[in-house]
Design a protein around this nucleic acid. Sequence first.
DNA 1: CTGAAAGCGCTAACAC
DNA 2: GTGTTAGCGCTTTCAG
Lengths: 337, 337
Amino acid sequence: MGVTIKDIARMANVSTTTVSRVINNKSEGVSESTRKKILDLVKEFNYQPNALARGLVTKKTKTIGLIIPDISNPFFPDIARGVEDSANDYGYNVFLCNTDEDLHKESEYINALKEKYVDGIIFTLASIPKYEHILDLIKSGIPVVMMDRFIESKDIKGVFLDNLEGGYIATKHLIDLGHRKIGCITGPLHTKTSIERYEGYQKALMDANITLDKSFVVESNYKMDGGMKAAEELLREKKITSIFACNDLMAYGAYKVIKACEYKIPQDISIVGFDDILISQMLETQLTTIKQPTYDMGATAAKMLIDMIEGKKVRKKIVSFKPQLIIRQSTCAIDRR
Amino acid sequence: MGVTIKDIARMANVSTTTVSRVINNKSEGVSESTRKKILDLVKEFNYQPNALARGLVTKKTKTIGLIIPDISNPFFPDIARGVEDSANDYGYNVFLCNTDEDLHKESEYINALKEKYVDGIIFTLASIPKYEHILDLIKSGIPVVMMDRFIESKDIKGVFLDNLEGGYIATKHLIDLGHRKIGCITGPLHTKTSIERYEGYQKALMDANITLDKSFVVESNYKMDGGMKAAEELLREKKITSIFACNDLMAYGAYKVIKACEYKIPQDISIVGFDDILISQMLETQLTTIKQPTYDMGATAAKMLIDMIEGKKVRKKIVSFKPQLIIRQSTCAIDRR
DNA sequence: CTGAAAGCGCTAACAC
DNA sequence: GTGTTAGCGCTTTCAG
């Protein structure tokens, strides 16, 4: 559909090689006059190089894949936006792939992306701890950057949040406010992120010489209803004065239960979440939470990937982002009770 | 990187033609034995066809482009998910492109997608009423499906929400509850969607024999702060008893102002929004609103596009989705005041 | 039922 | 400075 490099060459009375040289700016050895002639023709006939043909010979497509669990999960749009913006800056396009954490879909996407010769892939793994296929992928030579969910392996590169630090500062904030009986609603404890946040909680307690009471810890599912159930359990004569929920959705579930029980937030019970999703600042009592720099994480992952693709030295194999405590209205000092 | 059709052909002692036939299931004329031999080899060596080479000759890439303003706008992730799911069902991959409603970026993406030979493009236009480039694109022959934002043109195909109906049922709901003094916070009135929602409001009033009071109508910007300003204006001795905000973000802005003024929702002022974004059901007083079937719209757009690509008869050129009234807690009958 | 040959549109040695 | 040639990996006539 349209004019090819041959057409331009014929009209300019030059070879395709020469045309190729100028459209790729490898025009060291092209006279200014033929250069201009070609450029004029290109503009006049709106010549657009066929990326398939080009890719077939160069083995580069200026295309990357982004594989995530689910773009409609509020955690991912900002990441995706960061990735796409960076990619776009470097002239790359991005394939969006939603896996629903399904390993089969994950493999299918990997195959499709390989067939389409993407230059690299950014990955947020399924939380299931199974990733031989990823390791194989990396060994096959295609640049891969992991995001958010870590893999134990020497040759992994990636962008992660310091979840331990996040759990730590969330809990420390509560401790600094005078709380001693701090409940913890964790995510599923077979995932690294959940474990780390929980470890952060434990470390903060330890540093403050507070003994861990396991009955204050409830494992949940990162969902709202899970947060509700967990809060019901914690409220059952545990006498806790505060809760650290390992994500905002669960914090919101807890929030609803607490308010339904006629407790006041933060006077009766302080609560801190994790993620800083949009709703957190829209609640009646705005949620104190731990913010992840999602956009930056996406943007950094894409930059890193493209550096790898273009053979630049990638200094840091692992970039660790620091979470940030956002103090809002759902926490207060215990002596204000 | 890896084994090609030639390798398979050599190992099977057949021509590449034959291999091509079996991997593309055009194997009418291939004996069962060679067929099996080839399939075994394909599996053994994990042969993956090179999509670039294939696309170069077939002019088809099993790839579509999705051009939207901004994936981090909560309205779009569900749409994108619908698009991607449908595409995936048919074996297509999707390029994600964020334009920020910038016409220049829009054109750049169109060019890039054409160079990469996408089979079709799904579009949510910038709201600026300028779209010659889209019309050109369509004339160039590449299948295009519009989404959400309409263009006046015979040969347009697309998927839209019946925004007039949406404005109508929102307003009618208020009228049915006994309200007569109904404020309206519109979006920017140079966009078709905004105009239509506003027209729906007017039509509902007219059908109920309520005279339109223009002082009850405030044009705003679809953003939260715009909703706040508009609400402040409406609250200034207009004596309205209810507000129809043309999206949830503005409704939320109004909500905050109303509560800040110590009015009660819905007893003093009823409010209905539009979109049903996640936060609407998370507010202290859950928001009555108009829901758009975003996922379905995306999924339908992709199906439509792929049907066009694959030459199937597309019965409906325009699919109009009906909005749905979601009654929650922010509206009540006027006599309960 | 199978293969030979041409060609998609481009880039990359290499030669002049 | 510029052109010739080969070839990327595949599909598609056309012939047998």
